[in-house]
């Protein structure tokens, strides 16, 4: 199968092809440059592999959580491509993609934390095994002092991934103590998304273009309603 994946949920802008399991990836550090870089990167990646857009079987994207604007750029691009090509979409959690990036060579449980601003973190716990990423709990957004870890086997060690671990001082001591090893620089990449999307594809998780929506996690921001509404 041929799958194009993209991620614009964080500072990076990345695109990847998954050609029957072989990943070809391009990554640029492009804060606030996504709208300039994403289309040229897609065009170039396809050109390098001598592929036409119509050769693709499916599209994948980092569906969040992450920068709201970035999520929507990715969703908008993937919707446009999938709708125009008549191909299905595989949304992938950016926390799960980060878990894979952090634990690719080194299986085990991983707790991913992104800085969600407003003194909160986006949080997801996973088990990575044989390149598969199993969510252990539902993803959420909450203040660092309200975080907790699910129970795992006694001899296993948690790995912390993502820049949200910079807020470690504000996390409960039990969480910090359980997670001694940390990869602060781990971020979602289109390559990891392309791998996870392939599994989802085989599991029949592909959806229609119109259903390709961001997952913000933060849905109640303090927008002030008019009295009585």
């Amino acid at each position: 199968m041929k799958l194009l994946a993209l991620d614009t949920t964080a500072e990076g802008c990345s695109v990847a092809l998954n050609l029957d399991g072989q990943i070809i990836e391009q990554f640029e550090n492009a804060p606030r440059m996504h709208t300039r870089r994403i289309m040229p990167m897609i065009r170039e990646l396809l050109r390098q592999s001598a592929l036409k857009p119509a050769d693709l079987d499916a599209l994948a994207f980092g569906r969040g959580p992450g920068s709201f604007t970035g999520l929507r750029i990715a969703a908008g691009i993937v919707q446009g491509l999938a709708y125009g090509l008549g191909k299905p979409v595989l949304p992938v959690s950016s926390l799960a993609a980060t878990a894979l990036v952090a634990r690719e060579q080194n299986p085990g449980p991983v707790a991913v934390a992104f800085d969600a601003r407003m003194a909160e973190v986006y949080w997801g716990t996973f088990r990575v095994e044989e390149g598969r990423v199993q969510p252990l709990e539902e993803e959420r957004v909450c203040p660092p002092d309200r975080l907790s870890l699910p129970t795992i086997g006694g001899d296993e060690r948690w790995l912390g991934a993502g820049a949200g671990w910079l807020l470690c001082d504000e996390m409960p001591k039990s969480v910090c103590d359980a997670v001694t090893e940390r990869l602060l620089e781990a971020i979602p990449t289109a390559g990891a998304i392309a791998l996870l999307a392939q599994q989802a594809w085989l599991e029949g998780a592909a959806i229609d273009a119109a259903q390709a929506q961001p997952v913000y996690l933060r849905d109640e921001v303090a927008w002030q309603k008019m009295p009585g509404r």
Binding site: T35, I38, M39, I42, R43, P53, T69, R72, I73, G76, I77, V78, Q79, G80, L81, Y83, G84, L85
Partner: peptide
Amino acid sequence: MVGGSFAHALAFA
């Protein structure tokens, strides 16, 4: 950005 991203990708496709 929503309209622009969608429009560019659709045109490319």
